[in-house]
């Protein structure tokens, strides 16, 4: 997204990508996280997990804004999103 005018505190408030951890052995491939990710940072795998499910994988972590919705909506408690430490300092 390009803004035609920069907010004065843009640098301070800039979001840095979150880190998404997915336990592929817990994932049952419901697609919720992929479908509802506001930045389309996730996708479903082509390969199958040991239980036979396609599982969610991170497509482009740089898109992640660490909103944590995937973590909340995951029915399997399989996703956790962490924010790199230096992000919390500001």
């Amino acid at each position: 997204m390009t803004l035609w005018r920069q907010p004065f505190d843009a640098a301070e408030k800039a979001t840095k990508p979150g880190q998404i951890h997915i336990d592929k052995e817990r994932c049952k491939g419901c697609d919720f996280c992929v479908d509802f990710c506001p930045t389309e940072a996730l996708r479903m795998s082509v390969e199958l997990s040991s239980k036979g499910y396609n599982f969610a994988v991170v497509d482009d972590e740089s898109k992640c804004l660490a909103c944590g919705f995937c973590e909340l909506i995951c029915p399997e408690f399989a996703i956790t999103v962490s924010i790199p430490l230096d992000n919390n300092v500001a």
Binding site: H21, I22, D23, V58, T80, S82
Partner: peptide, 13 residues
């Protein structure tokens, strides 16, 4: 990053 869940970083784990 696709790996096994690290219990420490999951808020409800």
């Amino acid at each position: 990053m696709t790996d096994t869940l690290n219990a420490k970083n999951h808020s409800i784990e």
